Simulated assay, not measured.
Amino acid sequence: MNHQPNNPLHGITLQRLLEELVDHYSWEELGRIVNVRCFNNEPSIKSSLKFLRRTEWARKEVEQLYLDTFFI
């Protein structure tokens, strides 16, 4: 396994990251923090993962929110 000691997201899947954020904030609050349609209009893990995997800027915002929420 490739170890990345300076990457706090190493080993955390995008699905796990998103599920933990939804559990912590709720879809409604998450949609206010990161204003993307997949969080505000009939949100689901599946549709959000599809969007985040194709949209780098949104994925980076969600990853940063995760770090700010759970690591700082």
Score class of each variant (00 low, 15 high):
Met1Ala: 12
Met1Arg: 14
Asn2Lys: 14
Asn2Trp: 12
His3Thr: 15
His3Arg: 09
Gln4Lys: 09
Gln4Asn: 12
Pro5Thr: 07
Pro5Ile: 09
Pro5Ser: 13
Pro5Glu: 09
Pro5Leu: 08
Asn6Met: 15
Asn7Thr: 02
Asn7Ser: 04
Asn7Met: 03
Asn7Val: 00
Pro8Leu: 13
Pro8Cys: 13
Pro8Gln: 10
Leu9Thr: 03
Leu9Arg: 03
His10Tyr: 15
Gly11Glu: 00
Gly11Trp: 00
Ile12Val: 08
Ile12Arg: 05
Ile12Ala: 08
Leu14Arg: 01
Leu14Lys: 10
Gln15Tyr: 12
Gln15Lys: 15
Arg16Leu: 13
Arg16Thr: 08
Leu17Phe: 01
Leu17Val: 02
Leu17Ile: 02
Leu17Ala: 01
Leu17Glu: 00
Leu18Trp: 04
Glu19Ser: 06
Glu19Ala: 02
Glu19Met: 06
Glu20Gln: 10
Glu20His: 10
Glu20Ser: 12
Leu21Ser: 05
Leu21Met: 03
Val22Met: 01
Asp23Arg: 09
Asp23Met: 15
Asp23Leu: 12
His24Lys: 07
Ser26Ile: 01
Ser26Thr: 08
Ser26Trp: 12
Trp27Cys: 03
Trp27Ser: 06
Glu28His: 13
Glu28Arg: 08
Leu30Trp: 05
Leu30Ala: 00
Leu30Phe: 01
Leu30Met: 04
Gly31Arg: 06
Gly31Trp: 02
Gly31Asn: 08
Gly31Ala: 01
Arg32Glu: 08
Arg32Leu: 08
Arg32Lys: 14
Ile33Lys: 15
Ile33Met: 07
Ile33His: 08
Val34Glu: 03
Val34Asp: 05
Val34Met: 00
Val34Cys: 06
Asn35Lys: 15
Asn35Ile: 08
Asn35Gly: 11
Asn35Phe: 10
Val36His: 05
Val36Trp: 05
Val36Phe: 10
Val36Arg: 09
Cys38Trp: 03
Cys38Phe: 09
Cys38Pro: 07
Cys38Ala: 15
Phe39Gly: 02
Phe39Ser: 00
Phe39Trp: 05
Phe39Thr: 00
Asn40Gln: 03
Asn41Thr: 06
Asn41Ile: 15
Glu42Thr: 13
Pro43Phe: 04
Ile45Arg: 03
Ile45Phe: 04
Ile45Val: 13
Ile45Asn: 07
Lys46Gln: 13
Ser47Lys: 10
Ser47Asp: 14
Ser48Ala: 07
Ser48Asp: 02
Leu49Ser: 03
Lys50Tyr: 10
Lys50Asp: 08
Phe51Thr: 06
Leu52Met: 01
Leu52Ser: 02
Arg53Phe: 01
Arg54Met: 12
Arg54Glu: 14
Thr55Phe: 04
Thr55Val: 10
Thr55Glu: 13
Trp57Lys: 14
Trp57Ser: 11
Trp57Asn: 11
Ala58Met: 06
Ala58Arg: 09
Arg59Val: 04
Lys60Arg: 14
Lys60Ser: 14
Glu61Ile: 02
Glu61Lys: 07
Val62Gln: 04
Val62Ala: 01
Glu63Leu: 04
Gln64Ser: 05
Gln64Ile: 10
Gln64Pro: 11
Gln64Lys: 07
Leu65Phe: 06
Tyr66Trp: 05
Tyr66Gly: 00
Tyr66Glu: 00
Tyr66Ser: 00
Leu67Phe: 10
Leu67Lys: 14
Asp68His: 12
Thr69Glu: 06
Phe70Cys: 06
Phe70Trp: 13
Phe71Glu: 11
Ile72Tyr: 13
Ile72Ala: 14
